[in-house]
Amino acid sequence: MTIIRAKNIKKTYNHETLPLEVLKGLTFDIEEGEFVAIMGPSGSGKSTLLHIIGFLDQQTSGTCHFNGKGMDDYTEDEIAHIRNKDMGFVFQAFNLLPRTNVYDNVKLPLIYSDRPEKEWHDLIMKAIKAVGLEHRVKHETSQLSGGEKQRVAIARALVNDARVIFADEPTGNLDSKSGSMIMKTLQELNQKHGYTIILITHETYTAEHAQRIIKIIDGQIKSDRKVRKRHDANHGFKK
């Protein structure tokens, strides 16, 4: 089933001097359960593309559908609801709440969800266990290593059972060992638990963890190839 359909996506930033065209007509589909790496050098427009397909930003022209509908088909509140329920974001800079412990950081998406509060604890603990941080539950984020912080961010993306995890350079701020652990975690989430993963990276060895690599250069798709066989796992931890 196609979960993301991008058709001729263009994005232009209107700078004071000259308009800057970052994306120049990108078209692709992403199936549910896929692990796709969007790869390209700095400034190629890959992060902008992730923000558009993650409904965090809007394209200048073209269409981008998530689950059959475009951003314009939803109200602002519905988009917020989709981001909460169906999407999970992992950022290069972790973006964790300061002076807040692991448990409360992972809890954050649930606060904005319709899930009953009595279910929260189990969901939070499952997500924390999935990234192997159960021994750090009460630690504040400032007490964690970079790799652990990124695992907290992944747990936060998982906690509300998102269908798609958008990871924007998740290993960019990590050493190679921690980066490799994060990639293994993402791979496991895709292969064992059926999460759709969309990974943004500029590193070839990071991209190689994915099943499919879309290479972008200068705002255009240079190549789109499958590098691994897809694993068809059922989505979620509960199954």
Binding site: G54, E76, A80, H81, N84, L97, L108, P109, Y112
Partner: peptide, 13 residues
């Protein structure tokens, strides 16, 4: 604020 909005907070929230 950006993070909260990214993970599902509405304007009202």
């Amino acid at each position: 604020i950006g993070l909260r909005k990214a993970i599902g907070a509405t304007k009202t929230d």
